[in-house]
Design a protein around this nucleic acid. Structure first.
Ligand code: MN
Ligand code: MN
Ligand code: ZN
Ligand code: ZN
Lengths: 145, 145
DNA sequence: AGGCTTTTTGCAAACCATTCGCAACAGGAT
DNA sequence: ATCCTGTTGCGAATGGTTTGCAAAAAGCCT
């Protein structure tokens, strides 16, 4: 997982650049975030971080998440009826499908949709600052009865 | 405004069908919702309803909004960093652009995007239950310096 | 109208995710 | 060691929304 270490390093740099100290607690959370391949919420991140930094508080998790988001290195997603979920923001832009039965989050991206969005905004005299597109889905019922 | 009266009637029917009594307070809110051409939040709806039903409480507004949403006759939108906003759900489906400077909400709809969304979900083995697409935008800077 | 049953109301309190205030604390520079 | 400044954990506050409850209103039957 050199990839995760790279990300952790990236987070560290971003915070340092913003004059933020890398404490034991923050280092732990940074590693957890860097390794996460899913979309955990603050409580889950706190749970995972406690292994590496016993005693870390949920407040610290929230504070650090806010700092990371301000630096643009992680993203916060507010899906329907759930607490905020987080993920690292290094890869390509993507949007999400949420399986309404299982809660699973699936990533996807459509260049054509992205282009159409920009086009529509432009036609109406606007530029897109950012957007949010979430498909709440259900596994396809298997054709045959 | 026969259009609004029609909508109010529609709301009334929907609630009645669900075994909900149309009280003075609810009638007031129904009218307010039916007449609204914007995307007011609960507090604003409460404010507007107080004219027609003095003493109506915010709790009643929330309770009735929930009932109307359950009947599918109004929609609740949770835009970024704001309280829930409501609108009647009779017209065609549409999505929203939010002007990040002014907070203005602009409606739009793209059949092409809607089709692409369905196509993407299908390809991944899902059916869309519902979706959410919000463009956070800024007025286009006027070309010339 | 009167009486009975069910729903609704307004109020205050509870919720819940997130933020904030603060006094104790840690890190680094001198 | 000593300053200085940023950070911590705790508990309390926040704010939109929901809920428990006793009193009031609506519907219903006669
Ligand atoms: Mn993602
Ligand atoms: Mn709308
Ligand atoms: Zn996108
Ligand atoms: Zn749409």
């Amino acid at each position: 997982m050199t990839n995760a270490q790279q990300r952790a390093e990236h987070f560290t740099q971003a915070l340092r650049a913003a004059g933020v100290r890398i404490t034991r607690q923050r280092a732990a959370l940074l590693d957890v975030l860097a390794e996460a391949e899913d979309h955990p919420d603050a409580v889950e991140l706190h749970r995972r971080s406690k292994d590496r930094a016993p005693g870390i508080s949920l407040s610290t998790v929230y504070r650090t998440l806010t700092a990371l988001e301000e630096q643009g290195v992680i993203q916060r997603h507010q899906f329907e009826g759930a607490s905020a979920r987080f993920e690292h923001a290094d890869g390509e832009h993507h949007d999400h499908m949420i399986d309404v039965e299982t809660g699973d989050v699936i990533e996807f991206c459509s260049d054509r949709i992205e282009r159409l969005q920009a086009e529509i905004a432009r036609e109406m005299g606007y530029d897109i600052v950012h957007h949010r597109m979430e498909l709440y889905v259900r596994r396809r019922s298997n054709g045959k009865a």
